[in-house]
Design a protein around this nucleic acid. Structure first.
Lengths: 353, 353
DNA sequence: GTGAAAGCGCTAACAT
DNA sequence: ATGTTAGCGCTTTCAC
């Protein structure tokens, strides 16, 4: 079991191998200036002693910590899980550690930006999906390390994100092309004030409607919290109680779309026969539940963010202001269909409860 | 933006405040032996210089790294997301960092256990949901730090987990109590050879059947991979093509249950009228989709694991071999119901395709 | 190709 | 209550 025994140091390895500590250091870092036979001896000694280099001591002199930090609003979402599941192994392969700062409420957020615990404890920071204030962004600027913005953009700073406006546009256009004219948008809210780009998606929704010459109706935009189920039922109720209810709902994310569909079906409103529903993400469950959606790839984002981070650590000037924009794809599936009664422009009298 | 400027050291703060570095150290660590006025001066200087203590340097002398490491098979699951979302802020509040080792395939697993990168780089390690070999467990023993096993148990080592056998028993008994006699069990497989306790849940399933005097039929146990949808359709097909198909399916986890239900409904087999389905976890979507399930609380597990880790770091003897077993709860919802034709013992001739 | 020596930034005795 | 001193374990000149 674990015990407080002293761990072997480089000096121990050196002694055992009959060389100097410097040589051990050189060997273990794979520097070429070590003769093969000495290298072998050192490696053997290190293995026998179960030696591991102390990052702490090393970083004290190199100035590099060997860790990449990420700042995330939650870990409990498909998006973050996928992104970090690709980022983690990538960093590992590069010999880096991943430290995670989870900020789940406002007080944690304030504390983070006040103390900046990542300072001096990481070589780069990747900030995921926060809707940062200008002050917060500026605060990160003097963190003394490269900061990469992921699933969001910051002007003049390296960013990796999808074109949410465009993606939302695609979703909305798909509904329009099916013949829908009354299309609702359902954004969500998170606790720590973060946004998985709901703002941008709203923009795309509006843009597509405007393109199609359809007036914006703010009654059709209903925020629903994923935290409690009541919220969703109420939100859906709000839409169903409109004088002219929507024939289609565009949910900000798949999880919400699933919940909305369930709420509708419980109320015996058939999807997609009566109301179409489309999500955003292409979450795993979207496939299982045959949900139409707009796909984005968080694992690609994680990977690209990681690569960018490593690159910036090596040379903080390259790609200093680089923006990587990833594509989105419409995935039409079984929850979208033409509206119940095909309507032409102008005959909006034709109504059904 | 970020730049390579030298970060201020304690000496800088000391100079600015007109005191010695030791005093700065004492002040910043909140030791009581500092006069209020000096404390104020030091804090002011530190703030002005935007100073942050280097964990690296501190840990070099204290021997504590100030980080808790976790080893996880993936981050892309409801379970892990929930667990770490509670563990993270807890550690943060204790002034600790969280570093994450994601091991998503066999080669990464091998590499981890060979090099043990956490050695010397953390004060404690929490291992989540792996089905470790004895060798691996022993290897972790001489990591030189407390190791906490979460969502699994290791004999004689601190562990936090739910009684999966009991939970699975509850799920199975619920189906039995509804009158089901042909009950299938659907485990999943993950990539890195980890198991979210599928083994234990199988045991519980069998135990409940045995209790009820129902013979075990291995044809009713069909492993389904969540990675691809085909696998699920095929798995469901396997069950439906049995000479005597099940009237109920117990899925190892909610995600799988959802996929199975969808597969059944697509095939026009009504759930729960024709076949009942129950999951395990009480995943968020379980509520949205009205899935019967057995609840466990990964956030409780994360929290308890974190608390145990902190405690073991302080005093590696306390609770050295402590096992914390968390409860599970049956959550009956809309996907379980009595079987289509109530059957009594003996009249198993009464059959319907 | 290898060793000796000088720190990296901090904390922990020990003085005062 | 504060300052002085001596390292923590490693990397990095600089000699050889």
């Amino acid at each position: 079991m674990s015990s407080a025994q002293r761990l072997p140091t480089m000096a121990d390895v050196a002694e055992r191998a009959g060389v100097s500590p410097s040589t051990v250091s050189r060997t273990l870092r794979g520097l070429p200036t070590v003769s093969p036979e000495v290298r072998a001896r050192v490696e053997k000694a290190a293995r026998e002693l179960n030696f591991a280099v102390s990052r702490q001591a090393a970083s004290l002199v190199t100035g590099k910590t060997g860790v990449v930090a990420v700042l995330v609003p939650t870990l409990n979402s498909w998006f973050m899980g996928s992104a970090l599941s690709s980022l983690g192994p990538l960093l590992r392969a590069a010999g880096m550690e991943l430290t995670v700062y989870v900020i789940s409420d406002m007080s944690e957020r304030t504390a983070f930006f006040e103390h900046l615990p990542a300072r001096r404890n990481a070589d780069a920071l990747a900030v995921f999906g926060f809707d940062l204030t200008d002050e917060e962004t500026v605060r990160l600027d003097d963190l003394g390390m490269p900061v990469i913005y992921v699933s969001q953009h910051a002007e003049g700073r390296p960013s990796v994100y999808v074109d949410d406006v465009d993606g939302a546009c695609k979703a909305t256009r798909h509904l329009l092309n099916l013949g829908h004219r009354r299309i609702a948008f359902a954004p969500t809210v998170g606790a720590s004030g973060f946004c998985f780009s709901s703002r941008e998606r709203l923009l795309g929704y509006r843009q597509a409607l405007t393109e199609a010459g359809i007036p914006i109706d703010d009654d059709l935009v209903v925020t629903m919290s994923l935290e409690d189920r009541r919220g969703i039922t109420q939100g859906v109720g709000k839409l169903l109680s409109l004088r002219e209810p929507p024939t289609a709902i565009f949910a900000e994310m798949d999880e919400l779309a699933i919940a909305i569909i369930h709420s509708l079906r419980k109320a015996r409103i058939q999807v997609p026969e009566r109301i179409s529903v489309i999500g955003f993400d292409d979450h795993q469950v979207a496939e299982w539940t045959d949900l139409s959606t707009v796909a984005q790839s968080p694992s690609d984002m994680g990977r690209l963010a990681g690569e960018l981070a490593l690159q910036l650590i090596q040379d903080s000037d390259t790609g200093h202001t680089r923006h990587i924009v990833l594509p989105t794809h419409l995935i039409p599936r079984g929850t979208t269909a033409p509206p119940p009664v095909p309507r032409r422009e102008g005959d909006s009298e034709d109504e059904r409860a």
